[in-house]
């Protein structure tokens, strides 16, 4: 056990799985970097934010492949390789670039198993970074996990901390289905204690980062941290929250979410993806349909407005949910009094 950053935790998961299984390969733009450069240095970058640094040096050119800037072909190649014996982990850099290769994910990888009558396996992981807070503007800041969650056949992982990232990535690599693994780009330097040995965290099992009596907060990815911060402050005022980190949006641990809402009777959902047809609406529908009687107050969603992500810092701050907004949503559901029902 030692303190590791989100970046190091991901790097370690990749390294340990590559050591364990020779079929695990990596591909992506500049994941080594420096090939064809005048310095003659390979592994010059280790990915645009240094997440795969050292893996080319350790595993060599037959395991780690720098790609041309050709997402449709290399993501498609990862799909094809996965269907024929390898276990590729392809890095898409920014998840926004999925626009360039969605067919290979949506119409190919996701459909093979079902469409081929259960005869195909596509053990593929696509890693990409997501999220606002980097002033990266509209084409480099989206939180597109609902887009993938919408597609049957894909599994979707949104880790909320270094510990979670390592265990969930190892699980993703060992999983026989195509998995989209989304890393919040603002979290790469976050640190916590992470075991040195390999471990996996099963998909579809939510993690309760704390348990309380009054309000259930369901949050995704980086938003779990904000929910915890809000819960800390609320605790001081005697409001106790359960914070649910579903870890994966597909499969979704609906049972745990429903149980928590049954216990607390109040629900706040925090989702940094665009507000229409996102995880917040999905969870709200689930609870409204299956735990209606338990609800003491309307469900509240803490989500961004239905706009592209703005560039300027002031606007981006307004755009993104934060712990203050979560706190006030929790207070508002606590303050809610049911109007007298008409007979």
């Amino acid at each position: 056990m030692s303190k590791k950053s989100f970046r190091q935790a991901i790097n370690e998961a990749l390294r340990q799985e590559m050591q364990r299984d020779p079929r695990v390969i990596l591909m992506g733009e500049d994941i080594a970097g420096g090939q064809g450069g005048t310095a003659g240095v390979v592994d010059a970058w280790g990915g645009v934010l240094g997440v795969t640094k050292g893996l080319y040096t350790e595993f060599g050119a037959n395991r780690v492949f720098d790609t041309p800037i050709s997402e449709a072909s290399y993501i498609g190649a990862a799909v094809g390789a996965a269907a024929t014996g390898l276990r590729p982990v392809a890095e898409l850099m920014f998840v926004d670039f999925v626009g360039c290769c969605l067919d290979q994910i949506m119409n190919q990888a996701a459909k093979f198993r079902y469409m081929f009558g259960g005869k195909a396996r596509t053990p593929l992981v696509i890693r990409a970074m997501y999220g606002a807070g980097f002033n990266a503007a509209a084409q480099h800041s989206q939180a597109l996990y609902p887009l993938f969650t919408h597609i049957p056949g894909l599994k979707v992982v949104v880790p909320s901390s270094p510990y979670e990232a390592k265990g969930l990535l190892i699980e993703a690599i060992r999983d026989d289905d195509p998995v989209i693994f989304l890393e919040n780009k603002v979290m790469y330097d976050d640190e916590e204690e992470v075991p040195d040995e390999p471990y996996s965290i099963p998909f579809g099992e939510a993690n309760l980062t704390r348990e309380g009596d009054d309000v259930t907060i369901v949050a995704f990815g980086r938003m779990v941290n904000f929910a915890n911060e809000a819960a800390d402050r609320l605790e001081k005022d005697g409001i106790s929250c359960t914070v649910v980190d579903p870890r994966t949006t597909s499969p979704l641990d609906s049972a745990t979410i429903l149980e928590c809402v049954e216990d607390t009777g109040r629900l706040v959902i925090v989702d940094e993806s665009s507000p229409r047809c996102n995880m917040a609406t999905d969870v709200a529908a689930l609870v409204a349909e299956q735990a209606f009687d338990a609800l003491k107050a309307p469900i509240r969603q803490v989500v961004p407005p239905h706009t592209p992500v703005p560039f300027a810092t002031v606007l981006e701050k307004l755009y993104l949910p934060d712990s203050a907004r979560i706190e006030s949503a929790v207070r508002s559901v606590m303050a809610y009094k049911k109007a007298k029902q008409d007979a």
């Binding site: 503007a137 509209a138 560039f311 300027a312 606007l315």
Partner: peptide
């Protein structure tokens, strides 16, 4: 030029026939 909405990678001025910088390669 874009009211702070776009930043370096999205400078555009269609009145000058400038269809925008672009964050997406290609």
């Amino acid at each position: 030029v874009c009211h702070g909405k776009g930043g370096s990678m999205h400078i555009a001025d269609l009145s000058l026939g400038m269809l925008g910088a672009n964050g997406i390669v290609g």
